[in-house]
Every structure is written in structure tokens, then in C-alpha cells.
Simulated scan of single mutants.
Amino acid sequence: MGVRDINLTDSNLIYIVVCSYKDDFFIKIGRTKNLYQRIKNIQTGSPHQITNIFVVFSEFGEEIYGLESVFHKLIDQYKMKGEWYLGSEDFFMLFDSILIRVNSGSLGELVFENEDNFSYDEVEILFHTHNYSFSEIEMPIESNDLLLSTQLLKPNDICRRIQEQKGISKLN
């Protein structure tokens, strides 16, 4: 797919940071406007090396706020602590299905089943179709200038990329 320039200090992003330890994958999901500073802070606070970074970009900060909030609530069963999740095949399949539904405008049924857990601001993104995809960020991040993403990925490609980085076949 295509390549995208991402301004590391002024872009509306959801990030997916992957840290690996032995055969486990730990995933941190959050939002930021300053990816460079956020990644530096995460690496400082993590006992494990960051192996992959993926981002979803939007011109609109409110979309990123809503999307991140919906993700956190719908993937809660995989939460370990704070915004850290145990990355497994099931986790990525669920994450993929959420993003596909957001893109098609059909996530509403999942959210409205648990409507007491969501605010209007969080679900406003559900009323539109989108074309969100992930960009994989080249590692290591060494400056706070524009960062070139090597590929735009569909969500199900993330598992494969993590496997390739780690050199194992734990996730399919």
C-alpha cells in the first residue's frame, strides 16, 4: 500500500505500541498529538523494548478521542493494567473486527448493546463510514521531525508484522 509522512509532534493519532518479552506481546493503546514524546515516555516506563509501533491517523481530534475510547471499552477483557493489553490472536481478531465495523459504519450494534457504557462523544464516529488503516512506524524513532511510515496496513496485517519482527509464529 502507500507511504505516509506523519508529523510526530502535531498529528491526531491512535497508537498501538508493542513490547515483547519471551513469547508474550504487550500492547499499549492510546492517543496523542505528539507521537515522538509519547513513545519516548512509554519506552522509559516499560521494562521491555518496544518492537513495533502502529498508528491510525485522522485530521479530526474528536474522531481519535471517540475511536480510542470505543476501542478501550470493547477490548476490556484483554486488559492487564491501565492501557496495557495482552496481545493474542483473539485480541487482534477482535481489534480487527472493531476497526472494520467502524470503517463500514456498522459498529453501532456492539455499542448499543451496552449503551450505558458509552457517551455520545465517544460514539459520534459510528455515524459515519471511514477508511481507517494502520501505518507502521519505522523503528527506531530518533528525531521529532516528519516520520515516514513504510506501509499502510489493514488491521489483520498487524499480527503478521509482529511475528516477523519477533521471528516466531505464535500469532496467526
Rank of each mutant, 00 (worst) to 15 (best):
D116H: 11
S20W: 00
E124R: 15
R4W: 07
V102Y: 04
K28V: 06
I29P: 03
I42A: 04
L110H: 10
F57Q: 10
F60D: 15
I125S: 03
D121K: 14
F54T: 00
L126T: 14
G87C: 09
I64F: 08
E68G: 08
R101I: 00
N144V: 00
L110D: 10
L152F: 11
G2S: 14
E164M: 13
E124S: 14
D96W: 02
Y65Q: 11
I27L: 07
Q49C: 09
G66R: 01
F118M: 01
L99W: 02
V70G: 00
F54A: 05
N52D: 14
V55D: 05
S133E: 11
R161L: 12
T51Q: 09
I158A: 06
R101Y: 04
I42K: 01
S149W: 01
D157M: 13
M80F: 15
S143H: 15
E59P: 12
Y78P: 04
E62W: 09
Q163H: 07
S119D: 09
K73M: 07
D90Q: 14
G108Q: 09
V70P: 00
N144C: 14
S20Y: 06
Y78S: 06
T129F: 04
L152W: 07
I168Y: 11
I29V: 11
L148D: 08
F57T: 07
S58I: 02
N131E: 11
V111R: 00
E124K: 15
Q43K: 14
T129E: 12
E62V: 10
F26K: 02
N7M: 12
K81E: 13
Y36R: 11
K40D: 05
H48A: 12
I27E: 02
D5V: 08
F91W: 03
E113V: 05
E113I: 04
Y132V: 01
Y65D: 12
P155Y: 02
K81R: 13
D5R: 12
L146N: 15
T129L: 03
E138A: 14
I27H: 03
K33F: 10
N41Q: 15
L147N: 09
I75D: 06
D76A: 09
I100W: 01
V3C: 08
S58L: 06
L86S: 08
S143V: 02
H130F: 13
K33E: 14
R38P: 08
W84D: 02
D96E: 13
E164N: 12
E62I: 13
F54I: 01
I53C: 01
Y36A: 13
I6E: 02
S69N: 12
K40G: 02
G2E: 13
Q43Y: 03
N52W: 03
I125C: 10
P155G: 10
E142A: 10
N156G: 02
I42D: 05
E122R: 03
C19A: 15
K81M: 13
G167H: 07
S169Q: 13
L13N: 07
S20E: 11
I98N: 06
T32F: 06
T51W: 04
F54G: 02
F134A: 03
H48T: 05
G30N: 07
H72A: 08
R160M: 10
F60V: 08
N52Y: 04
M1W: 00
I98V: 09
R38Y: 05
N131W: 01
T32S: 07
T51D: 11
C159H: 00
H130I: 03
R161H: 12
G61E: 15
E109I: 13
